[in-house]
């Protein structure tokens, strides 16, 4: 390696000063552009180019990468490339590059009940004895326990709109305050019953939902798919989902009425990104 000593090739103070002026001017221009409405549509490429120029000027001249050994540049650019990759990968993974993403800061929150429900968990135990026969009939109807037939069966049950609210019982489930846990680890429902699950979100800042899914890998698969479903309250479009509430704001509650599957193992989970790792539990089907 030739020992070209860099002190002679380093820029002079005059060059440093010119760079400082340029950096200041670019920053001033960036702020000015914010106030020009006609450039609104081009604002992302303009700002990316301008800040890249500033970044490159500091790195090349103030940090001497232009004049120093290329190994230093390699070390730095490697980290920089990985960082850029991480940013883009995360933005794509979480759907943050979607259309109008930065223009709509409000999250989708449609029909949310504000807690005026007469049903209580007492009704739960009464219903158990009463509905024995009908549940039995449902069970025999679904003779195949393979997952596919379960889907078809439960999907049909959820979409049918003749669920009379009066005859269903309500199970309430809450959150452990601001902790990322449901306040129950297990829930249960009688096979074939129409039940209402009411999610009471007692968190101070977090939004939650309650999604019933088949037990096993499906829970994490569905939760992962939900990470990019920002527009539907983090609920992915997945046939395996038996039932789900809307995304419930802190301090509010919401409910979902559905028919309990006849058999199989199920789990409930919150699909808000990151919550699924702790916010889940088993949903037992009693016969």
């Amino acid at each position: 390696m030739a020992s070209s000593h860099e002190e002679s090739t380093h820029p002079t103070p005059a060059v440093y000063a010119k760079i400082a002026v340029t950096l200041a001017l670019i920053t001033a221009a960036e702020v000015a552009i914010l106030y020009i409405d006609s450039l609104r549509g081009l604002i992302i490429p303009i700002f990316v180019v301008m800040s890249t120029i500033k970044f490159a000027m500091v790195a090349m001249f103030y940090m001497h990468l232009k004049f120093d050994n290329k190994l230093f540049t390699l070390f730095f650019v490697s980290g920089l490339a990985l960082a850029t990759g991480v940013i883009f990968a995360l933005l794509i993974l979480f759907g943050a590059l979607g259309e109008g993403r930065y223009g709509s800061p409000e999250v989708v929150t449609d029909t949310i009940a504000h807690g005026s429900d007469a049903h209580s968990s007492d009704a739960h135990s009464n219903d158990h004895g009463r509905k024995g026969t009908s549940a039995k009939a449902e069970t025999t109807a679904s003779h195949d326990s393979s997952t596919t037939s379960d889907h078809a069966y439960t999907k049909a049950a959820v979409t049918s709109k003749d669920l009379s609210a009066a005859s269903t019982m309500t199970i309430e489930i809450g959150t452990k305050g601001d902790q990322l846990f449901f306040d129950q680890e297990t829930m249960s429902g009688k096979a074939g019953d129409h039940i209402t699950v009411k999610l009471v979100n007692s968190a101070g800042a977090q939004q939650h939902n309650w999604v019933l899914v088949p037990a096993g890998p499906a829970r994490l698969e569905i939760a992962t798919a939900g990470m990019i479903a920002a527009t539907t309250g983090w609920i992915p479009s997945d046939d395996r989902i038996v039932a789900h509430t809307d995304l419930i704001n802190p301090g509010e509650s919401g409910e979902v009425t559905f028919q309990v599957p006849s058999e199989g193992k199920y789990e409930f989970v919150c699909t808000f990104p990151g919550h699924s790792f702790t916010m889940f539990g088993a949903f037992e089907i009693t016969q």
């Binding site: 730095f76 980290g79 920089l80 960082a83 991480v86 940013i87 995360l90 933005l91 800061p105 920002a230």
Partner: peptide, 23 residues
């Protein structure tokens, strides 16, 4: 170089959750 990745992750997280604020 490693610090680039550190800040890259933080900035990415900010961008991912941008607009997901509680009403």
């Amino acid at each position: 170089g490693s610090e680039c990745m550190f800040f890259g992750s933080l900035i990415a997280t900010y961008l991912v959750y941008y607009g997901q604020g509680t009403p």
